[in-house]
Amino acid sequence: MEVLQLLISGLSLGCVYGLIALGLVLIYKATETVNFAQGEVMMLGAFLAYTFVNVLGWPFALGFVATLAVMGVVGALLERVLMRPMLGEPPFAALMLTIGLGFVLRAIAGAAWGNEPHTLRTPFAGDVLRFGELVVGTENIAIVLGTAILCGGLYLFFRFARVGIALQAASQNQLAAFYVGIPVQRVFALVWALSAMVAATAGVLVAPVSLIDPLMGFIAIKAFAAAIVGGFGSLPGAIVGGLIVGVVEQFASRYLPPGFGDTSAYIILLVMLVARPEGIFATLQRKKV
């Protein structure tokens, strides 16, 4: 029973890692930039939701939708204002820019909302469901359900929407995408918007578990491990990688000596990099001529 209990909390934690990893992979796949500020984007989303729901007193659903909308705009603006001028610069420059962006966002959040932790008022937190001996927090169920719905939506988007397919096309062959008339720049802005919205969802879902403060974005480092385990560049891989990292972390902190819980993600990462560096769902392959 304890195993099942740990599995459930591991899975819900893993979903959060997975969602952040998903945002990372979305941007990486399309633009070949790694956004090191992904965790801070998530933090910003959580704070926005806090402002709408707690401060302004809007109903949760409305506050959540407003958060998604604002974060979509923020994501697109980040691409338009910061990343687009970096086109043609060395990739390392863009990478440093995202690291800097993380610092800036943390400072802005600290100044705007303060450094003490906040609690987001949600309709799904604080209750428990009992299945016999099994006790499951409703926020855990909400995280898993929310992740499942989001992934389903993204799957449909990429499989059937014209823009979704164009997005894949642009990530698979940028020049050819230009040549067929896909407005690649606008598609990139859309990717950033999408990624910010996914991150905001992760932020709102994790808020009841981890509280909202300017430093909450640091869990993105574990999401980074999750993305690599899944095979950087694979969307399902990001989620699976997240789940693996989350579950292992829960079991490690229960059954292994203290300290292994927090380091388990990086241990998995190291093992993975040695044993199968291309990740579980290897999508990266050399272009054949």
Partner: peptide
């Protein structure tokens, strides 16, 4: 280049640059 394409200039680049993970029909629809 995307703007030029929308004018009606179809460019078939050297080395057959298809979208490898999209199906044939999706490639054509793109």
């Amino acid at each position: 280049p995307d703007r030029v394409a929308r004018l009606g200039v179809g460019h078939v680049p050297e080395g057959r640059e298809v979208f490898p993970f999209l199906t044939v029909e999706e490639n054509l629809r793109m």
